[in-house]
């Protein structure tokens, strides 16, 4: 569905995407996980065939966006990071007018719009102004709009950013149903739980480059340990005690020293904690948990995802 080699995007001097290789296969859910400014949206806009590539090669649905842009876009659904709904139109007209841009006949758009309003549970709101919708409803409307042309490939740029947990779960459920229906999904996110829930395969992106690639499980196995022990220590004087303490437990596993806690990566978290106590250290709080993509990200980039 998508094949990129050495793909680049520059804005003047600044290089937002610095040569990435990506392959997305039919029917899978593919994710770009990365912090702010990683180049996710820039990549998505190139895939959406609205932003010309600056270097490398890109093939979408077997076509070249530089020459077949309209044909490609006719088969894509795009849910941009920033809402581009028309505030001056009501909910239904937003879908109808957009469907007309694809050259779909009036009658067909009308019945499609009814289906989609049902699908995203906005039938009751169909005559409301877009301005009066909540953030979650707007997001759902944007997703409905992106489906108006029955796309083969759906691009979702941070579909759930800014939504409350319940609204996110509703959206995830809808995306999951689309995937079941055979739509290929490409999702960007900086939420690791979202990536874990939705994506079959993902790439971790940072500063315009791909840092790692694989399924969520693979990535965790390759780049992290099974468990993580999180230790918090009381701050006794001006200096941060974490640096000094880290020196005393270096041998227990790979360490990440964060401003508010130390992470110890080990196959057995409980054993780590027992050893910490044996050495006379007295953390005020401890937690043992499984590794997540967050840990993968921390290892690969030295930074946390959501900052």
């Amino acid at each position: 569905m998508i094949r990129a080699r050495g793909l680049r995007k520059s804005f003047g001097e600044f290089e937002a995407v610095k040569g990435i290789d990506v392959d997305v296969r039919r029917g899978e859910a593919f994710g770009f996980l990365g912090p702010n400014g990683a180049g996710k949206s820039s990549t998505m806009r190139m895939i959406a065939s609205v932003s010309p590539i600056s270097g490398g090669s890109l093939e979408i649905l077997g076509m070249d966006p530089a020459t077949d842009g309209p044909a490609i876009r006719g088969r894509l659904g795009v849910c941009p990071q920033e809402d581009t709904l028309d505030n001056e139109l009501n909910v239904r007209d937003n879908l109808y007018i957009y469907g007309r841009y694809f050259g779909i006949p009036k009658g067909e758009v009308n019945s499609r719009v009814d289906e989609l309003l049902e699908f995203v549970s906005l039938t009751e709101k169909s005559r409301s102004k877009v301005e009066d919708l909540s953030g979650g409803m707007k997001r759902r409307l944007t997703i409905a709009r992106s489906l108006v042309n029955n796309p083969d490939l759906l691009l979702l740029d941070e579909p759930t950013t800014g939504l409350d947990p319940q609204a996110r779960h509703v959206l995830w459920d809808q995306l999951f149903r689309l995937k079941q229906a055979g739509v290929t999904l490409v999702i960007t996110t900086h939420y690791m739980d979202e990536a874990e829930q939705l994506c079959d395969r993902l790439v971790v992106m940072d500063k315009g480059l791909i840092a790692a690639e694989g399924s969520p499980r693979q990535l965790i196995e390759e780049h992290s340990t099974r468990e993580v022990a999180e230790l918090r220590f009381a701050i006794t004087d001006e200096t941060n005690p974490h640096e000094a303490i880290a020196g005393k437990i270096e041998d227990l596993g790979r360490l990440e020293v964060l401003p508010d806690r130390i992470l110890v990566y080990s196959p057995d978290g409980e054993e780590v904690i027992a050893k910490v106590h044996e050495r006379g250290l007295d953390p005020i709080a401890v937690l043992v948990r499984r590794s997540t993509l967050e840990d993968v990200f921390l290892k690969l980039t030295g930074r946390t995802l959501v900052d």
Partner: peptide, 14 residues
């Protein structure tokens, strides 16, 4: 302000 053009060019329109 409305970004209507951005939604339009996501379709086959140029």
């Amino acid at each position: 302000w409305h970004k209507t053009y951005y939604s339009m060019i996501a379709t086959p329109l140029e």
